[in-house]
Amino acid sequence: MSKILVVDDEPDISELISLHMMREGHECLCITNGLEVMPSALNEQPDLIVLDLMLPGLDGLSSFKRLRADSRTRSIPVIMLTAKTQTTDRINGLELGADDYLTKPFSPRELALRITAILRRTKKVTHVSEVKTGEFLLDRKNMKFFYKGQPIDLTTTEFKLLAVLMENTAAVHTRAELLREVWGYSDDVATRTLDTHIKRLREKLGDAGKHVVTVRGTGYQFSMEAPAVAVAA
């Protein structure tokens, strides 16, 4: 679980971001005033900050400069978020060293994907050689998968797909995320490839295939207990 600090004075925006971050398995902290940025960053040491530029107390750019000026917060990744659409604002933020930039209105899914990409790039999200969940064991080093101690023969693509799902069982993985992580697609292209592989994966898992659940309108999740919002396809 990564800790995300959201700085935005619009409660609806903060709540929306928090909801999606928690669905992705992250812890989310929210503040509304630019003067709270440095104290919160020092006390909480978040893994990433989503920072609105239009803030009361102290504007986002000034808050960002303070973060970068202090050695204790300098390395925290920052995504700037603002209603401004002028190119100069985007350039100013990136020139100051922001890791990414989004303008309002924005897609919560896109924000979540950008956060995941930044966390991986900064090694805040790591892959372990073995992933064990209940009676499932995924051995990344040897590309082997076991259920109740018995090996299950998976193709390379099926293995990669299952690895992404099992690495964070708290997260609901979007179709776009899975297509990018497993197949390298840059967009949420219209393809049945993902659905076909999910179906084959469930067939190979047999009764245990119920743990690969479909979340309507979003994507897939590996869950030991199917959540109320998810149903097996």
Rank of each mutant, 00 (worst) to 15 (best):
L5G: 06
V6W: 04
V7L: 06
D9Y: 12
P11C: 04
L16D: 14
E24Y: 13
H26R: 08
E27I: 05
E36M: 07
S40Q: 08
L42M: 12
L51M: 02
L53A: 06
P56Q: 01
P56F: 01
F64Y: 14
F64V: 02
S71W: 12
I79F: 13
K84R: 15
T85N: 14
T87Y: 07
D89G: 03
D89H: 11
I91R: 13
G93M: 10
D100M: 04
D100S: 11
L102G: 02
L102A: 00
T103P: 07
L111M: 10
L111N: 07
T116P: 00
T116A: 01
I118E: 04
R121N: 03
K124G: 09
T126F: 00
S129N: 10
S129A: 08
E135D: 09
R140D: 10
K144F: 02
P151I: 01
L154C: 05
L154A: 08
T156E: 15
E158H: 07
F159M: 06
L165M: 07
N168H: 11
A170F: 05
A171V: 07
V172N: 12
H173I: 05
S186A: 13
A190R: 13
A190Q: 14
T191L: 08
R192P: 11
L194V: 06
K199A: 11
R200P: 00
K210P: 06
H211L: 10
V213E: 08
T214Y: 13
T214L: 06
T218V: 14
Q221G: 11
S223E: 08
A232D: 09
